[in-house]
Design a protein around this nucleic acid. Structure first.
Lengths: 148, 148
DNA sequence: TTGAAATAGTTGCATAACTAACTATATGCC
DNA sequence: GGCATATAGTTAGTTATGCAACTATTTCAA
């Protein structure tokens, strides 16, 4: 039984897009101001590779919540910019492992600093325990919808 | 002084995209399954017009958190599908007022019901007071970033 | 062992987003 | 009144997303 019959239309606006778009736009702006030519979507791929280089494209799908064609094209564009390189797996020839180039490693510190700064701006005046609640709720929302 | 130095990278993933994308995809799926040919972006325009018909494109920008070119093209596509109509304002000839057609009025009840149903699915197991917290935090995030 | 099903990735097509540059109209200050 | 500036909207170019259909490879079971 649904437990939340109250202004769901507005809730929809809130959960869907408005805050996340604002954060994304701000981060993109910070990148641009720093003279960095990458998009935030490309950056999110690099972010996961900095944490764990050599992920397969499928793993990048899982970790960035994108579908396979999106990853294919993001990796295409990152390869064009010589920030990553596809390497066929030796164990399973269906799999491409994606590796960072030295150029990408140079971006890590500056861009993560800009991302942290962006989150600091975004979260001014927000209580720490409320942030935990947001994380939990949005994770629950994702889990509620992810299967099928 | 930033007050939230803890795993902001992951927080970024949570706030940005994952939950909102999942909700969007689920709603789009519900529309498709019901044989409705509109995108959720188009629907969000109709949603604001059902609440207040005859908004200007600029007002639609403000209410849907989109930029002007996005609204131009969404209204283009809605006009192609004969769901809305542009009417030049008599007071200010720069302004287009956007009006719903009878066909769009027919969609209101069904699509809002599907949206509510989608939010119900999304919020299963989430406490009402936590939802209030999420709304408040995301609104704060938006307000923190919206100016300039 | 062979053939069906599953998995990894790519391609094509449509829609949507952002930026920048543009047109048209309105406002406001000298 | 006239010119600078602001505002409303459009257009063009690039990137990203969703879906469906496709190829290649692997897995698994009859």
């Amino acid at each position: 039984m649904p437990n939340n019959h109250f202004k769901r239309g507005e809730l929809y606006s809130v959960i869907n897009g408005m805050a996340s778009t604002a954060v994304a736009r701000r981060l993109q702006k910070h990148f641009r101001q720093a003279g960095l030519e990458i998009t935030i979507e490309q950056w999110s791929i690099l972010y996961h590779l900095w944490k764990n280089d050599g992920l397969s494209q499928q793993e990048l799908c899982n970790r960035t919540f994108r579908d396979k064609p999106s990853i294919t094209r993001l990796v295409d564009n990152l390869e064009k910019q010589q920030l990553v390189q596809r390497v066929a797996s030796k164990e399973d020839r269906r799999i491409n492992l994606v590796y960072l180039t030295p150029a990408a490693l140079l971006l890590q510190e500056e861009t993560i600093s800009l991302a942290n700064q962006t989150m600091d701006e975004a979260l001014i005046g927000v209580k720490k325990e409320d942030i935990e609640t947001v994380k939990t709720v949005l994770q629950q929302v994702y889990d509620n919808l992810k299967q099928q």
